[in-house]
């Protein structure tokens, strides 16, 4: 931690024990944050951020989180490396596989295809934010009941995608599933169970 103060997130609520361990010492370790460089374009001053680390503030699962990040850090890497929200997985890292699926302002996106700095001002929901506490959401329960997971690495992304999909398609048919759940890949081959989950129509996002 001494080497990289930016790994410490600041949170305003819901501080877990682990979060607390990471936060402690923020005050002494964070370097003085300098304002961004300003350039003039079309008669207005525009702030230029980076290429070094800049303060990035995100709203994730209803919490304000912030870190010092280079502009090149993706939302996925910020979630995983800086905020220890590791439910979203890095698998292809090229916006194909869906393992990093999160909700951004209520819509599914690949967190690997979004820059963290560009996600500021958006409401981000990760798999960790779908369930309240230890209780599983109906969709998660359905994944367990239909055994729609094996190794589990694609599962969080698939559950975020399925949750959003069922909100949009409360009574999905095969064509809806084809278009709506094809953004996630599974290697173990759990699609039969996931299709059963979608057709079973578990209701509601909340646990």
């Amino acid at each position: 931690m001494k080497d990289d103060p930016t790994r410490k997130p600041e949170t305003t609520s819901g501080v877990s024990r682990r979060d607390f361990m990471k936060i402690s010492g923020v005050g002494v370790a964070l370097p003085l944050v300098l304002g961004p460089k300003m350039v003039e374009a079309a008669g207005e001053e525009v702030a230029v951020h980076g290429p070094g680390k800049v303060p990035v503030a995100l709203t994730v699962n209803g919490k304000k989180l912030s870190a010092q990040l280079e502009p090149r850090v993706t939302l996925l890497d910020a979630l995983r490396d800086n905020f220890d929200l590791t439910g979203a997985k890095r698998v292809c890292d090229r916006g194909v596989c869906g393992a990093c699926t999160v909700l951004m302002d209520g819509k599914t996106v690949y967190a690997c295809a979004v820059l963290a700095i560009d996600a500021q001002g958006k409401n981000i929901t990760t798999i960790e934010g779908l369930a309240k506490g230890d209780a599983l959401t109906p969709v998660m329960q359905a994944f367990v009941a239909h055994d729609a997971q094996q190794c589990g690495f694609c599962t969080p992304g698939f559950i975020v995608a399925t949750t959003h999909f069922l909100e949009q398609h409360p009574n999905p048919n095969a064509e809806d599933i084809r278009r709506g759940l094809s953004g996630n890949y599974c290697r173990c081959g759990t699609y039969n169970g996931i299709r059963a989950v979608a057709l079973a129509k578990p209701e509601g996002r909340a646990s």
Partner: peptide, 18 residues
């Protein structure tokens, strides 16, 4: 099943100590 479905299962890739 529940620990995987909730995203709490920690894989090697997720190992992220201070």
């Amino acid at each position: 099943g529940p620990v995987k479905a909730s995203g709490r299962a920690k894989y090697t890739y997720d190992y992220n100590p201070n």
